[in-house]
Computed example of a mutant assay.
Amino acid sequence: MERIVLGDAEIIRVVEWQGPFAPAGVLVPGVAAEHWKENEPWLAPDHWDPSADTCRAALQTWVVRHGGRTVVVDTGVGSGRERPNTPQFHRREGDLLALLAAAGVAPEEVDTVVNTHLHADHVGWNTVDRDGAWVPAFPNAAYLMPAADHAKLAALAGATAPTPAGDVPQTQLDEWRLMFADSVLPVQQAGQAVLWEDEYRIDDALTLEAAPGHTPGSSVLRLASHGERAVFVGDLMHSPVQLSYPTCNSCFCEDPVEAAASRLRILGRASEKHELVIPAHFGGAGAAEVHRAGAGFAITRWAG
């Protein structure tokens, strides 16, 4: 477990998996091969394997403790999920709860779960299987979910062909429906889901803010404590190469124009306010301070 202290806040990084993830040109298709090579000195080996031209990534959860509150930020893939069209996630057997326990975090003490967006690898441990039924994994927590993502998934879950999803492949629609059924709807049925939009203040130190594009409801979580700051950016970036080329999206971004605009805005503020940037999936160090560098940004220091 890696721990970062900011002001009165403790941030704990809980890694379920770390390793090679996808070809660089597939994950961030807008970045040319020569640009990966130009940035090799700081991308390799933790974030990019030049010999295989493969990005390294992590499946991880962040825990924030501040002012007596315990917050879990994103909950990974889950265990035993039916994801037949995503081999990395299909019937995966992980144990985030055991990893949290090793970090000293019991499910009962978690009072807030933040899903930065509602993709399958950010909501899986929202629930656990109890006697054949999916129930909230954190029984005393409010689960903060972006209303825009929930509206999209709820519409798809109740839709019959033709769906309202335009050119989205049927396999993707099927996966979204499975994910909604096992990781989102049970939380709502238990009365623990809080759907929010635009901005949501958790307390004086923690605020959620919409950052759409990756999904309609993608969001970031801002932390401020005694003049020190961090921003949990979810899937705003999948690789640190996107700092150098911030208009380049990952292949998973649903609205490329909005995603790039959100990335530029959030990174710009992080640079100006010296916020520690904490993405969901960086495969080496999990967080970084950044500064402006030409048309993009660069690493001031790594953390976590």
Rank of each mutant, 00 (worst) to 15 (best):
T61M: 04
D74H: 00
G104P: 05
V72P: 02
S79G: 15
G124D: 03
E93W: 14
V73P: 01
D95E: 14
P84H: 09
D121G: 04
V123M: 08
P87Q: 11
Q60K: 12
N39G: 09
R65Q: 12
V110H: 03
G124Q: 05
H66D: 06
A44D: 04
A106T: 14
L96N: 03
H117K: 09
A102F: 04
A120G: 09
A106C: 10
H47R: 11
H119R: 12
V113N: 01
D74F: 01
N115Q: 08
A102G: 11
F89A: 12
V77C: 04
A44P: 05
N39Q: 15
R69N: 09
D121N: 08
D74L: 00
W48F: 15
V72S: 00
R91Q: 15
G80L: 13
W62T: 05
L43E: 07
E108T: 13
T75H: 02
V64D: 00
R69Y: 06
R65W: 08
C55F: 06
R92P: 05
L96M: 03
D121P: 02
W48E: 13
E109V: 10
V114W: 00
T70E: 05
V73T: 02
L96Q: 03
T86F: 06
P50F: 09
N85G: 12
G124T: 04
P84N: 10
N85W: 15
A101T: 13
A103C: 11
V114Y: 03
P84T: 07
G124S: 06
H47F: 14
E109I: 09
V105H: 04
G94M: 11
V110K: 00
H117W: 11
A57S: 08
G104N: 04
A52H: 15
R65I: 07
V77P: 04
H117E: 13
G67V: 07
V64C: 02
V73I: 08
A101H: 12
R92S: 09
R83A: 13
L96D: 01
R65S: 07
V72Q: 00
A98H: 14
A106W: 11
V72L: 02
